[in-house]
Computed example of a mutant assay.
Amino acid sequence: MSSTRLRTALLAFLTALGLALGLGTATAGTAGAGAAFASAGATAPAGAAAAPPAGKPVFQLPFACGTKWQLNTWDHDPALDIVKDGNPGSDGLPVYASAPGTVSAVYWNNGSGNTLQISHGNGWFTAYYHLQEAPDAYVKLGSQVTGATQIGRVGKSGAANGWAHLHYEQRYLASGTFTDETHRRPVHFGGVEYSGSGGAWPGVTSGNCAQPQGTPYQPWNCPNGSVCFYSETGGRGTVCKTDRNVSASTCGLRGSFFNNGHPEAGGDHVYVSFTEGGTSCLHHGWADGRGDFAAGGRTIKAVTWGGECP
C-alpha cells in the first residue's frame, strides 16, 4: 500500500473511531471548538459563524449598548449564564429586552427565581432568570418592549447559589404564549451563535444600540414605598431604587421619583445628600413626587427618610 493510501486509510479509521466514541469533529470557530477551548481552561473563540435560522429575530445582548460581558454555557447548553466581563460584580445591573416583543409571562419559580418571558413573533421567545426584583417590577404581562426597555436587573433570586448573574435563553415554539426549557435553541447575538457545552466567551460587546435606552416614569417602575433615581433627565436611564436609609450610593443622579406609601411613620419625604455637596428633598405623592435635579449627574451620598421637607 502506498504511503498516501496508508495515510488516507489511517485518517478514515481515526475519524470513525472518534465518531464511535462520541467525540465528533470540530474546526476552529465552531461551537465545538469553543467547548474544547473552555474545557481546556483557555479562552473560547469570539463566537461561532453559524447563521441563525430563517425568521429568527436579530437578538442582541440584553444589556446597555457598548458594555462588555462574559458568556458561559456551563452544563446547560444552549442556555447562557451572563455576568459583567471579568466578573467584577453584576448584581443590580440593568437588563433590557433582547429585541422588540410582548411580555408573555412573569412568574416566580424556586429554581429560576424572578422570571420573565418575552414573545418576539414568528414563534421566538426569550427567557430571563434570577432577576433581582419581582418580574413585574419594571414591565407587566402584555407590555410592549423594545431593546430600549429595561425589564429588570441582574440578581440572584431562586436557585442561583448566591451568585448574581443572568440566566438567559432563546426559545422557539410555533404556537402558544408560554415556553419552557424543552423549547431552548442555540443563542445568537447580532447573528453570531454562542453555543456548545462548556463554552466560554469573554469580552462580548452588547450591540443593543438601536434606540436610546432608559426607563420612563411609570407607576410600576418605582415600587410602593420606594424612591427611584434615574441617570438622565426626564426620568430615563439607569434606575437605582431604595426603600430604606442608604449611604454611599454610587448612583449618578439627574431625575427622581418617589412612590408614596413608605410604612415608616412620618417617612413620607426623602432627603438626598450629594458627594459634591448640597441636599435635596423629595415630597410625597404622584403629583409632586418627581423632579429633575440640576444637570451634571451628581453622586448620591446618602438617602434618608424623614418628615416634612423644610
Results as ranks from 00 to 15, higher is better:
Ser2Met: 02
Arg5Ile: 08
Phe13Lys: 07
Leu14Ile: 15
Ala16Lys: 06
Ala16Asp: 10
Gly18Cys: 09
Leu23Ser: 02
Leu23Lys: 02
Ala28Asn: 03
Gly34Glu: 13
Ser39Met: 09
Ala40Thr: 11
Ala44Thr: 14
Ala44Tyr: 10
Pro45Trp: 09
Pro45Cys: 10
Gly47Glu: 08
Gly47Tyr: 10
Ala50Trp: 01
Leu61Lys: 13
Leu61Phe: 12
Leu61Trp: 10
Pro62Tyr: 11
Pro62Met: 13
Ala64Lys: 13
Cys65Asp: 03
Thr67Phe: 11
Lys68Asp: 03
Leu71Val: 08
Leu71Gly: 10
Leu71Ile: 12
Asn72Asp: 10
Thr73Ala: 09
Thr73Trp: 08
Asp77Asn: 15
Pro78Ser: 05
Ala79Lys: 10
Ile82Gln: 02
Gly86Ser: 09
Asn87Ala: 14
Asn87Leu: 07
Gly92His: 06
Leu93Met: 14
Tyr96Phe: 15
Ala97Pro: 14
Gly101Leu: 01
Thr102Gln: 12
Ala105Val: 05
Ala105Met: 09
Val106Trp: 00
Tyr107Asn: 00
Gly111Asp: 02
Asn114Asp: 06
Thr115Ser: 14
Gln117Cys: 02
Ile118His: 05
Ile118Arg: 05
Phe125Ser: 04
Ala127Leu: 11
Tyr129Gly: 03
His130Ala: 09
Glu133Ala: 12
Pro135Ser: 04
Pro135Cys: 00
Pro135Thr: 01
Pro135Leu: 00
Val139Cys: 05
Leu141Arg: 00
Gly142Trp: 02
Gln144Ser: 08
Thr146Val: 04
Gln150Met: 13
Gln150Arg: 08
Gly152Ser: 06
Val154Ile: 15
Gly158Asn: 03
Gly162Asp: 14
His165Val: 09
Tyr172Pro: 09
Tyr172Met: 07
Tyr172Ala: 06
Gly176Ser: 02
Gly176Glu: 01
Gly176Val: 00
Thr179Tyr: 05
Asp180Asn: 14
Asp180Glu: 08
Asp180Thr: 09
Arg184Ser: 09
Arg185Lys: 15
Phe189Met: 13
Gly191Ile: 05
Gly191Ser: 07
Val192Trp: 01
Tyr194Gly: 11
Pro202Arg: 09
Pro202Glu: 07
Pro202Leu: 07
Thr205Arg: 01
Ser206Phe: 02
Pro216Thr: 03
Asn221Lys: 14
Ser226Asp: 14
Lys241Glu: 15
Lys241Met: 15
Thr242His: 10
Arg244Thr: 13
Ser247Asp: 10
Leu253Trp: 14
Arg254Phe: 08
Gly255Asn: 01
Asn259Gln: 15
Asn260Asp: 08
Pro263Cys: 09
Glu264Leu: 13
Gly266Pro: 02
Asp268Gln: 08
Asp268Ala: 05
His269Pro: 00
Tyr271Pro: 00
Val272Ala: 12
Gly278Lys: 00
Ser280His: 02
Leu282Ala: 12
His283Trp: 03
Gly285Met: 11
Trp286Gln: 07
Trp286Phe: 06
Ala287Asn: 02
Ala287Gly: 01
Asp288Arg: 12
Gly289Arg: 00
Gly289Phe: 00
Gly291Met: 00
Phe293Asn: 12
Ala295Leu: 07
Gly296Asn: 08
Gly296Pro: 06
Arg298Asp: 03
Ile300Asp: 04
Lys301His: 13
Ala302Gly: 01
Gly307Arg: 11
Glu308Ala: 15
